[in-house]
Simulated assay, not measured.
Amino acid sequence: MNDGNKTKINLRNKSVFITGVAGFIGSNLAKRLLSTVEGVKVVGLDNMNHYYDVRLKEARLNELEQFDNFSFVKGNLADKAVIESIFEQYKPEIVVNLGAQAGVRYSITNPDAYVEANLIGFYNILEACRHSYDEGHTPVEHLVYASSSSVYGSNKKVPYSTDDKVDNPVSLYAATKKSNELMAHAYSKLYNIPSTGLRFFTVYGPAGRPDMAYFGFTNKLLKGETIQIFNYGNCKRDFTYVDDIVEGVVRVMQGAPERKNGEDGLPVPPYAVYNIGNQNPENLLDFVQILQEELIRAGVLPEDYDFEAHKKLVPMQPGDVPVTYADTSALERDFGYKPSTSLREGLRKFAEWYAKFYK
């Protein structure tokens, strides 16, 4: 880790607040902390909404309930009273905001959910962090929050670097994520709250999100339905395995941007943003090919499954981009880390999990 501009945080015995804890990344992060960090206490918030199969969220929560140091609050990020009561009761020193309404396409049909969770919800988190600095409260040492590769919009330059201008979102979802970065910057500057945004690139793995392509494809193929491959297969995605994402988040949690004053005596905002991706964009058609092979290997689909009969190449969807590609050199420089799980290895773990969970 490049200590020049980071304040080191030891996670032992810390109180960590994770929003979206029954979600894909949130549950994996909570499990990792609870099973590897001595004395850590995790409080998780989730609204358990029906955006996708709630049984998955319940299964993830059940796993977390086995840990003594885990507390769960069912509630909404947009409900200020709930957020305030969590800060009063659990006094979190580190906050990881992963709770959000996800999905690009859904933001076109259901915009209210995004404004509520991603804008009002994030504002409530920032306010609670700010008030943690009031007298008699436990100050938040680091706010880590999920941004998204979607903020790059239709940027032509690849790979995407955090130095690029990102002023051209092509979906409301992307606009809310960019807004989170702007709001965090303002709060870091005004109230000296150390914050780090993480732009996640297509995250996948076991017990992932059913609205994601690999999961949806699997469900459809199993039912004998046809899968649609957008942009006639000319899509590239920087697929990132969930364990790689969690490892990145855990490392980042332990290095907060340093609080220091500038020449004017005012805080230099303790603010940072990183990409977490695989630096290895995969063509959608190759991805589908590997997925097929792994689903057959795991016994989810029969050996003689006729894939060609179930594939349809279709045009691009609104809000989608043709390529995502992360430049992760800054993460490597500051935290000595870059994701490395190969697509085949990751999809193999997904296929094996799927066979077990749905059989």
Rank of each mutant, 00 (worst) to 15 (best):
G136H: 05
G153A: 00
E88K: 13
N168W: 13
I108A: 13
E294S: 02
F215Y: 14
L11K: 09
K165I: 15
N97D: 12
E303S: 09
P92A: 00
D46H: 10
D3P: 15
K31P: 03
E181S: 08
L331G: 01
N76C: 14
S27I: 00
A326T: 13
G265L: 10
E127N: 08
V288P: 08
I290V: 13
V323Y: 06
K178N: 11
I18S: 04
D238F: 09
I296D: 09
F17P: 02
V43T: 12
K74M: 08
A174T: 09
F230Y: 15
L61S: 02
V250M: 01
P302R: 06
R105Y: 12
F200C: 04
T196A: 08
N219S: 04
V321L: 04
V314R: 01
Y133A: 14
R209Y: 03
E294Q: 11
N76Y: 15
I18W: 02
L119D: 06
H185P: 00
F217N: 11
R333V: 13
Y214G: 02
D164K: 00
T7Y: 12
I94Q: 01
N192R: 12
V252R: 07
Y160I: 02
V250C: 11
L222M: 15
Y52V: 09
N261H: 13
G44F: 10
K74Y: 12
N155R: 15
V242N: 05
T109V: 15
A298Y: 02
P302Y: 01
A256K: 08
F217Q: 01
V42P: 09
P194R: 03
K220P: 12
F239L: 14
L64V: 06
Y305Q: 01
V158S: 09
G103C: 05
Y106Q: 13
F335H: 11
P139G: 07
A22G: 11
F201K: 05
D164A: 07
G346K: 02
D3H: 12
G265C: 10
Y51G: 05
L266Y: 15
M212D: 08
N231I: 11
G248H: 04
Y173G: 07
P281R: 11
F239E: 01
G248C: 07
S149N: 15
Y241D: 11
N280V: 06
E135A: 14
E308I: 13
V203K: 10
A175K: 05
D320H: 07
Y152N: 07
F87Q: 02
H310D: 03
R251Q: 04
A174V: 12
F230N: 11
A272Q: 10
Q279I: 01
S150K: 05
P267G: 01
C129A: 08
Q289N: 14
D211S: 12
D53I: 12
Q254M: 15
D167S: 12
F70R: 04
Q101G: 00
P92R: 08
R105V: 15
V96W: 01
N118G: 06
V82L: 03
N97H: 13
I25E: 00
D53Y: 03
Y232E: 15
I245D: 06
T202E: 12
A113T: 10
D286W: 13
A59V: 02
N28P: 05
G121T: 04
V73R: 08
A30F: 00
S329H: 11
N69W: 06
E93G: 04
S329T: 14
S188M: 08
L222N: 10
K356G: 04
D264R: 07
I83F: 00
F24D: 08
R251A: 01
A59G: 14
